[in-house]
């Protein structure tokens, strides 16, 4: 079996898990949802195996190209889903989470997959920390979006906003945004220190830097308005959902549309 085959097996398993989950939701069968979850866990293990294999072949953290980053991003989301489901008993998160992971893997499969030698600028002590933090930051924002989506759907079903269930949902979304925000700050800070060593300046207003800052500001405003409780939980949930395009653009859009110092990624 080749390494690429393992990637496609993982993608296939994620897609299968999603289909079974959706079928389970449609016919309201918990057995199907359980089966979907175990298929998802199998997909995650395969994915993890692929990631480790690729890392061993490349002899580095495999997060340097758009393919590798998308693959790592999907793995980050899967791991967070695993934590959410096992530690927080949030089984409802599966459908949206599986859809997000499958879409990310499909996106990854459309990128160049070959392992390339790291360019000199990327051979740095900071590489693993900068990119690793970015993977988990985006993953946390995406899972927060899934949680907020759940909040909005529950609200539409008539669930009282003051119920403990809804309060916990909104709080989980906030905690995930807080985790993502802390990690995004680390990404920016580590990136700045690295940029000074590599390019002689902490900040060059490169499109990737600018969009990372925009994403940071969007979530900083969320944290501010949430702290002050100026708006309802429903508004905050919509805010988190609508913020998703910002970090997705920072992740993929900038590389495709805005040439800059990060264009190699």
């Amino acid at each position: 079996m080749t390494m690429t085959t393992l990637f496609y097996i993982s993608l296939g398993l994620y897609a299968a898990a999603l289909l079974v989950e959706l079928a389970g939701v449609a016919v309201k069968r918990d057995k199907w949802k359980n089966l979907a979850w175990w298929v998802f866990v199998l997909a995650l293990l395969t994915h993890l195996g692929y990631f480790v294999w690729r890392g061993l072949v490349a002899q580095r953290l495999p997060l340097s190209s758009q393919f590798e980053f998308s693959c790592g991003f999907a793995l980050g989301v899967s791991l967070l889903l695993l934590v959410a489901r096992t530690r927080l008993s949030a089984d409802w998160i599966a459908a949206a989470g599986m859809a997000a992971v499958t879409l990310l893997m499909v996106y990854a499969s459309r990128q160049k997959m070959e392992i390339s030698e790291l360019m000199p600028a990327l051979r740095s002590f900071w590489f693993d920390f900068h990119i690793g933090a970015a993977v988990f930051s985006y993953a946390a924002f995406l899972v927060a979006g899934c949680v907020s989506l759940r909040y909005v759907l529950q609200h539409r079903k008539g669930e009282a906003p003051d119920s403990l269930k809804m309060k916990k949902l909104e709080y989980l979304s906030y905690r995930l945004v807080a985790l993502g925000f802390l990690l995004l700050t680390a990404v920016i800070v580590i990136g700045a220190i690295w940029a000074e060593a590599a390019w002689s300046a902490y900040w060059t207003w490169d499109p990737k830097e600018v969009w990372a800052l925009i994403t940071w500001i969007i979530y900083a405003v969320y944290l501010h308005i949430r702290l002050r409780r100026q708006y309802s939980d429903l508004f905050l949930s919509w805010y988190v959902i609508l913020a998703i395009p910002a970090f997705l653009f920072t992740f993929a859009g900038v590389n495709k549309l805005l040439p800059g110092l990060h264009s190699y990624a």
Partner: peptide
């Protein structure tokens, strides 16, 4: 506003 100007600049 800072975010908006950053967006315009890009």
């Amino acid at each position: 506003l800072v975010a908006l100007l950053c967006g315009v600049s890009s």
